[in-house]
Design a protein around this nucleic acid. Structure first.
Lengths: 205, 205, 205, 205
DNA sequence: TATGAATGAGCTTTCATTCAT
DNA sequence: TATGAATGAAAGCTCATTCAT
């Protein structure tokens, strides 16, 4: 009835609702894990009815997988930005800095990811093998090249990457513990200086 | 030693079954998180009936809390062993080594703990504030003393501890990811050498 | 009157199902007591699925409490109707008659109530103290006034009320026993005449 | 081994334990009803282990039935004592007095019985029909005889008996309600005088 | 006699999902 | 699009009863 344009291309409202749902789901999944989260919680947080949630997504798992897919893209962006033509030490240090900032700005994303890996990545599908691995291989080779060229101290590039992930994401993933141990202090400032020293001393040739 | 007074009368079979249950529960909880774990899984893995599980423990939460209590003790042992009278750099490096070994030998414990912290530590009760914090405060002071005495390079002791936890536990907690990225290689050997270098270079004055 | 504002929006079907459930629950609770009743029985009797029952009520206890709340209102109505301005003896005798009729018309309600009181009224909450007591105090005072005015023989008004409750509700609460002792005879007619004599002779000054 | 007399005649300890169990069960059953009571509660209250309870009785129902059997005997004793050769009015009034005393001295028994009847007497078996009924028939005939002889006012003997039961047992069965309505006052004294008046006025010819 | 240990059946409740509109 | 209504499956837990000693 009426002019009804071919509405197949996801209307404004559709886009808005999908976003609402994903944001609510990110909150809930990152807080309670996949099994601990309920559609009721997500629906309530999104301000939509439960069946309406399932109009936009095929099920609980679909929401989770969609979140992980979106996440992987932005999550790996800093790593992609490591420039083979840049100044080696500064490229790495910038990566550390970016990852730490992401940990503070997107702790929910960090925890969602941590939850998934912690449980054996049952819903990551091929992402680790076909998405992450080639990128890590590529950047590890870049770093190895820098080391071979004497621009960086000789360290295992993969373990270097792991330790950057571990130390930066730790501030998001283990926030409950850090809060309990730092009380009032904001951990942020100290972390930034500390990690800068940690990796700089490791890597100066 | 060994005259076994009839104290609390936990019979042989009781002790055996409690151990069976706790071991099975450690498996299941560390794999699926608290909410994701079911008594059925635990019972099956323990080879006992579900009501029998509840004969030994008051409920799902009781099992989980018991595990966490047991865990905290052994988990913090390496930190307790840092000897204020020892050689500073070697005390720290031994701590790193011990933590990494625990990560390899007790990955389930590490993941159980990570799961709990990740979700805001809802069942850790007073452990973080009254158990962990004093210990960390104490050891941070020891390290600060060493730094003040010029025995270690000046770094924030708390962030140092966090980074040791993060990097060592990472090999247990993110094992799924590491497996995907290291393929055949055993991460262990490389990690040991890498972390030794990472922290040694940071700390030599 | 009747323009039906969209107040709380209890739809037709909702109202119907809530009524179905409450009626089924009245049956089951009055027959087996709170603990003896099961949601399965209620669901079956109501013709609904068990989870659907819990869509309308928060749980077994909620159903029971709702029934008791509804009940108290109608149950005390005859007592409320005792008119301080009426003819004393006839007011009392009408109360006896009404209570006996309720006992025959609503035996399930009587038994539900009896079950609850018999077990110490654990789910009646404040009803006895704040709902029933003031009403009884008030009516007892009215009766005492009549006695003081010489309109009724001097008796303790509270015990009078108790005995009216006891004798009338007995025909509902102890129906199983009465059936066994009266065989074919309908107890109703006899009861009506008997109680009329019992209380009339007591109260004529 | 040793002299071992033929132990089939229930030893001292057996008798003691059966009594312990029955007393505990009376407490628990009268408080929570049959379904609401658990063997655990009974065992704890009796100070015996659960399996030991089942050594003395065949099951939960057996305990309950045993209690009811014991009960019926003593419960009907006052009715049996009504003496056809006695002074009619005083015989009845003594019965009222005895029943009221039992209500105060054995409220648990009264409630156990009330619970059972209230739920349709599913475990009373033939007691009502073959135990109670003949006795009531007999005593109703006695009373009728007294009425026919002009010794008592003409009332229906069965309803008279019902009302005596109802009014006296009410003080035990509805104790929770009475407490709430009488607050501090002991209901006992008032009840005795009130019921004496109630039935005396009814019955004087 | 007595009891730790064990369990099948059943209970209330939760939850992802579907139905009907 | 949107949502009240409905449900099968499964969860945690209880309990009368049995087993084994």
């Amino acid at each position: 009835m009426s002019d009804a344009q071919p509405t197949k291309k996801t209307s404004r409202i559709q886009q808005r609702n999908r976003t609402l749902i994903l944001d609510a789901a990110l909150d809930v999944f990152s807080k309670h894990g996949f099994r601990g989260a309920t559609l009721d919680q997500i629906a309530k947080q999104a301000g939509l009815s439960k069946p309406n949630i399932l109009y936009y997504f095929e099920g609980k798992e679909d929401i989770h997988v969609t979140l992980l897919n979106h996440l992987m893209d932005t999550w790996l962006d800093p790593l992609r930005q490591i420039d083979p033509g840049g100044e080696p030490l500064e490229e790495i240090m910038r990566y550390v800095r970016l990852k730490l900032e992401m940990s503070y700005e997107f702790p929910r994303e960090s925890r969602l990811f941590a939850n998934e890996i912690l449980q054996g990545a049952p819903r990551m599908g091929p992402h680790l093998e076909t998405g992450l691995r080639p990128l890590v291989d590529e950047k590890a080779a870049v770093i190895q090249g820098w080391i071979d060229a004497g621009k960086l101290a000789p360290v295992d590039p993969r373990h270097l990457i792991f330790s950057i992930w571990a130390t930066t994401q730790h501030y998001a993933d283990f926030e409950a513990q850090i809060e309990a141990l730092m009380a009032g202090e904001r951990a942020h400032d100290g972390a930034s200086a500390y990690l800068d020293a940690l990796f700089r001393r490791l890597l100066v040739p």
